[in-house]
Design a binder for these strands. Structure first.
Lengths: 390, 390
DNA sequence: GGTACAGTTGAATCGCCTG
DNA sequence: GCAGGCGATTCAACTGTAC
C-alpha cells in the first residue's frame, strides 16, 4: 500500500495535507478522500464542497471541568484530560464553538447523510440542544456502555460507566438515510440492535503509545465502536468525515471496512500517529463487506408477471394459511374475492378487515395438499430474472 | 393507616389539597408533607418555602413530536402518547416551560438537596443544557436500560431501549448531598453502582388501570426505578418532591420507604388514581430501612483515644505490612519516625514518599509474632463506644 | 392442574416508488 | 409536488383460553 505526504498551503487555514489512501481524489466539486488535513476544523469544514459527505463521526472536546487533581485510593494520580483543546472560558464559549462546527458540518452533509456525535454529561446536553436548534433530526441517542469504566474513586457518585452518542439526520424530513437494519439484526442473534451498546474501552495493543510508551491521545475511541457505526450507517465506498480526527480511529476503521475517510486535526503529533496507524491497516476482503441481503433492496415483481411467466395460472384458487378466506387468480393479476376485485394486497386486507396486508405472504396456493405462500413463486420469478441477466 | 381528603382554595393557583400521609405538616415555613396538590406545577413550586425539599424527582412532558399513526407488523395500532399535556408549539415554548419549572424547583431545594430529571432524546438535551445554565451541577447522567422496550416496528432505527436521567446538585459547590454509596455498593454485589440501570418497564399488576381496564396513565414509571433513586439519594423522613406526580409512583415508593412526599398534578383523574394507590401502600418496617453502615458515618476516632482507652501503649513499635518502615507510638497520639513526629497519616505518607496515606490501614502492631493493622484497634474502640452508649 | 398457544401491549419524533 | 399503491416491519412480558 502506498503512503504519500504532500504539503500544500491553503488560504482558508494553515493546512497540511497528509494522504494515506488507496483511492484517488474524486471529481472536482467532490471532497478530498483518504486524507488528514491539518488546521482548524471550522475553517476546514467551511471549505468543503456542499453536500459532499455521506457520514460524519465527531468526537468533539468534552469541556470537562476538573477542579483539581484526582488520585486513586492508592494515591496514584489519575492522568486526566487537561489538554488546552478541552479548555473553554464558559458554557457560552463552548456553545458558540459547538454551533460553528455543527453548522459547518451540516452544510457539508449530503441530504441523506447522518451524523454521530459522542460526548459525556459535561457536554452532550448542550450539543444535543444545539443540534436540534440547527435543524438536525435526532434518530436515536445511543449509549456506549463500558465494560471496564474508570471507577469513581471518591465514592461520591455512580460509576460513570457510559458515554452518549447522538445519531441524527441532516433534516427532519430525511427518510432515505443509510441504515443497514438487516445486517445489524443478523449480527445481534436475529434481534433488533438496541440503543445501548456494550463495548470495552480502548486499552492494550489497540491503544496508541508515543515513543516514551505513554498514551498518544487521551480519548482514543475503540475501533469496535467506529466499526459498528460505519456498518450501521454507511456503505463501502462512502465518504466518512471526522472533524476531530485525533488518533485516527475513524480512518483506521474506514480503511479496514473499505470506506473512504477525511479527517481534520490541529495537532501534528496526532496526525503523525494517525498516519502511521492507518498505513498499517489492511482493508478487509470486499466479499466480507458485501451488503447483507435486504428484502427492501430486492427487485420489485408485479403479481401479473408470475402469470406471464407461467408460474401460476388464471383461475387458480388461493387461500390463507388457516384456510379461512378464499380468492381466485384473474388473468390481469388481480384477485377475485366475494365479488370484489383487487390487488393481492387489497384483497388480503379486505378479507381480514385490516387497513393493510402483505398479499405475498398472506395468500397461499395448494400443491398436493400442502399450502405455500405465493411469495415462493415470487422468489422463483426473481431467480429467473437473475438467470436472464447473466 | 389514615386517609383524609381536604379541599382548600389558594390564591396562587386553583389548588385542591389531597392528603394521604401519616405525618402531620411540619412547622410553619416548612413544606407540606404527604399530600398531592392540584394545579400548575410552576405556581405550586413558587409557592413552596425556599430551601425546604430534600430530593426532587421530575418526569416532565417529553415533547414527543409524532407525525402520524404507527402500526405494528400485525397491523394493530400503537397507543401513542398524544395527550394535550405533551403538546408544545415549538422548542422555544418547551424551553420556556422547562426553564420556569426548573428554576422554581431549584429555589425550593435545600442547599444539599439533589434532583433527578428523566427524559428521552426528544427533550433530555434541552433539559440538561437548561439545568446547567440555571446553575445546577450535574453529578451523573444515568441510563435506564429497559429489559422490555417497545421494538422499532419499521426497522428504520435502533430499538429505543433506554431513557436518560440527569442527577444534579443545586449548586456547583455542593459536597454534602446525600449519596448512600455503601448501601448501593452492598446491594450491587459489593461493586460500585454504575450509571446504567437495567430495569423492566411498568407492566402487569403494577400498572394502574382505570375502571374500564385501560392504562390509567400513559407513562407510569416502575416503582423499582424510584426505589433505587430514593435509596441512593435520600434518608427515611426526607421530603421528596415530584412536580409531575401523574400516577403517583413517587408517592407510593416514598411511603413504602418511609420518606415523605409532596406531589403536584394538574389532572384530577390522575390524582384520584394516585390517591387510592398510595392509600394501599404499607410502609416497610423501619428496621429494614435503617441506613447501611457507611465508613464515613462511623464515629470518628482519634488515635490518641486508643491510648486513652488502653488499647495501645505509648512506646509500642509499629511497622507496615511488609516490615519496611518502623515508627513508635507517642503518648500524645503522634508517631515518631526517624526523628520526625507526625500523625499516623502524615508519618505513613512520609515513610512511603507519597502525598497521602491512610495510617489506620498502613501501620500495624505485632502480637505474638503476627501483624495486625491499627484499624482493628479502632474497631474495638468503636465497639466500646457503642456499648457505653447503650 | 400444568402446559401450550394465541392475543395484547409498551414515552415512537418508524417507507418508497411511480405517475 | 402530491396522491396512491406496493409491501416491509416486532420483542419481552403478561393475560386469557384451550386442552
Amino acid at each position: 500500500m502506498q503512503t504519500a505526504r504532500v504539503g500544500i498551503a491553503r488560504p482558508v487555514a494553515q493546512i497540511k495535507v497528509t494522504r494515506t489512501g488507496t483511492k484517488a481524489d474524486g471529481p472536482p466539486g467532490a471532497a478530498r478522500r483518504n486524507a488528514i488535513l491539518r488546521g482548524d476544523c471550522v475553517s476546514l469544514l467551511r471549505a468543503l464542497p456542499e453536500a459532499s459527505v455521506d457520514l460524519v463521526f465527531a468526537d468533539p472536546p468534552y469541556n470537562l471541568q476538573l477542579a483539581g487533581a484526582l488520585s486513586r485510593p492508592d494515591q496514584s494520580v489519575v492522568d486526566a484530560v487537561d489538554d488546552d483543546w478541552d479548555k473553554f472560558a464558559d458554557f457560552s464559549a463552548y456553545d458558540a464553538f459547538t454551533k460553528d462546527w455543527l453548522a459547518a458540518a451540516r452544510r457539508a452533509m449530503k441530504p441523506q447523510a447522518t451524523i454521530f456525535v459522542i460526548g459525556s454529561y459535561h457536554n452532550i446536553f448542550r450539543v444535543g440542544a444545539i443540534m436540534q436548534d440547527l435543524g438536525f433530526w435526532i434518530l436515536n441517542d445511543i449509549v456506549w456502555r463500558k465494560t471496564n469504566p474508570m471507577p469513581n474513586f471518591r465514592g461520591r457518585r455512580f460509576t460513570n460507566a457510559h458515554e452518549t452518542m447522538i445519531w441524527a439526520a441532516r433534516d427532519a424530513g430525511a427518510k432515505r438515510y443509510t441504515f443497514n437494519y438487516e445486517a445489524l439484526k443478523a449480527a445481534n442473534e436475529d434481534c433488533q440492535m438496541r440503543s445501548d451498546w456494550l463495548l470495552p474501552i480502548c486499552v492494550g495493543a489497540e491503544r496508541l503509545k508515543d515513543e516514551r510508551g505513554r498514551k498518544a491521545h487521551p480519548t482514543q475511541k475503540p475501533e469496535a465502536l467506529l466499526a459498528r457505526i460505519m456498518q450501521a450507517a454507511s456503505q463501502p465506498g462512502d465518504l466518512v468525515l471526522d472533524p476531530f480526527f485525533g488518533s485516527g480511529t475513524t480512518g483506521a476503521v474506514a480503511k479496514r471496512l473499505r470506506r473512504d475517510y477525511l479527517g481534520f486535526e490541529r495537532e501534528s503529533s496526532y496526525i503523525d500517529a494517525a498516519q502511521a496507524r492507518i498505513a498499517a491497516v489492511e482493508p478487509l476482503d470486499a466479499d466480507m463487506l458485501a451488503p447483507a441481503p435486504s428484502k427492501r433492496a430486492e427487485p420489485r415483481i408485479a403479481f401479473v408477471s408470475l402469470i406471464e411467466a407461467g408460474l401460476i395460472a388464471p383461475g387458480t384458487p388461493l387461500t390463507d394459511a388457516k384456510r379461512r378466506h378464499k380468492a381466485t387468480v384473474r388473468a390481469d393479476g388481480t384477485l377475485l374475492i366475494g365479488g370484489v376485485i383487487g390487488s393481492i394486497h387489497k384483497t388480503g386486507a379486505l378479507a381480514q378487515g385490516l387497513p393493510a396486508c402483505n398479499g405475498w405472504t398472506f395468500w397461499h396456493f395448494e400443491e398436493s395438499g400442502a399450502l405455500s405462500p405465493i411469495d415462493d413463486l415470487r422468489q422463483q420469478a426473481r431467480d429467473l430474472l437473475r438467470e436472464a441477466a447473466e
